[in-house]
């Protein structure tokens, strides 16, 4: 039963990764693309990590996966902000 839930979570997570990549290709400008990368990919990673954590059977590995997710969350929010700010600065002073 837990396996079914885990596979379900991982599949939905992969779906969000795919949506993030489709957004990256379809969206018209840099700032819009950052939306797809930060939000969809973070949710995808969270769901995949949660799915794997359910089936590891090890508390340490489950906690480690959550830690990885939190660190990636912080890193992607920070790097999206840096890219967005830099792109805006360059646009303001050509």
């Amino acid at each position: 039963m837990i396996d079914v839930v885990a596979v379900g979570l991982i599949c939905i997570g992969i779906g969000f990764f795919a949506a993030g990549s489709i957004g990256l290709l379809r969206l018209p400008d840099l700032h819009s693309r950052l939306h797809a990368l930060t939000k969809a990919d973070n949710l995808g990673l969270g769901l995949v990590a949660l799915g794997i954590a359910l089936v590891t059977g090890s508390l340490v590995i489950a906690l480690k996966l959550i830690l990885i997710w939190l660190l990636v969350l912080a890193a992607s929010a920070a790097s999206a902000n840096l890219i967005a700010r830099h792109a805006l600065d360059r646009r303001e002073q050509p």
Partner: peptide, 21 residues
């Protein structure tokens, strides 16, 4: 953040994309 992910996924998968950046 779950809502954020779902929202952006729905917007980019729609045809035409529902965006006004």
């Amino acid at each position: 953040s779950v809502r954020g992910g779902v929202d952006v996924a729905r917007r980019v998968l729609a045809t035409p994309m529902r965006i006004a950046p």
